[in-house]
Design a protein around this nucleic acid. Sequence first.
DNA 1: CATAAATTAGGAACGATTATCACTTTCATT
DNA 2: AATGAAAGTGATAATCGTTCCTAATTTATG
Lengths: 120, 120
Amino acid sequence: MSRQREVILSVLRSQRFHPTADEILLRARQRMPALALGTVYRNLKALCDEKLVRRIPMEDAPDRYDGFVEPHDHLVCTSCGKVYDIPSLQTKEALEAKLEAPVEGYELKVYFTCPKCKNQ
Amino acid sequence: MSRQREVILSVLRSQRFHPTADEILLRARQRMPALALGTVYRNLKALCDEKLVRRIPMEDAPDRYDGFVEPHDHLVCTSCGKVYDIPSLQTKEALEAKLEAPVEGYELKVYFTCPKCKNQ
DNA sequence: CATAAATTAGGAACGATTATCACTTTCATT
DNA sequence: AATGAAAGTGATAATCGTTCCTAATTTATG
């Protein structure tokens, strides 16, 4: 694990948030100013493969990344795009029982308007 | 509704499939050879706004479109990318009850390997 | 140390989608 | 039919998140 990868992972674990690659770059550069965006993407992909990080694919915006990988789903504000955690609303097992077929995973996103956006 | 939009909608309603914008263009051009890809995208967006068509955002591939808009979810093959319909596994109402907040919608995709891909 | 293997920074390239724009088409009103 | 305004079109350029490329650097290993 390179120094760059360590910094990227520690940014993602520093708080419960769901930053984009750009936001990760900004924060990581505070500790490693020469870090390149390509390196961030490369390491995010590697970290996802190792299951240390979860990617949250966004429909009309840059993907977000989550440093907390216990199963949970996401609540997405349709106005500001911010992502919140919610407890798992599905399980692989329940899906397999319902579909009577092996399931590799699922992606559930619930859309709402966050309180901040609701008050303008 | 322009002739172009009619053709695009009828392609989407001609069978239960989930084509990309490119695939829609190919089929629509059989009836309207000069049709432009930009026009396909423009009309798909309009049809989605009118709730006549549903967009299926794909994580690592071009988005797909669905001409059947009754609530249902999707099963996605991680190998070939083909999309299958499944009955709704969630309802807006159930989500709102669980989350105790108004919900605008949800997007659930279940990943599996389709039988064809499983046999190589 | 030496050298092979892996990783990097930086920038170019890619690909799906959107924007732009000059030119039709549509259609309600004469 | 002629008009004019509004909406839609085809072609192409632009956008932008992400991936790829490459020479240079770092890391691992004997």
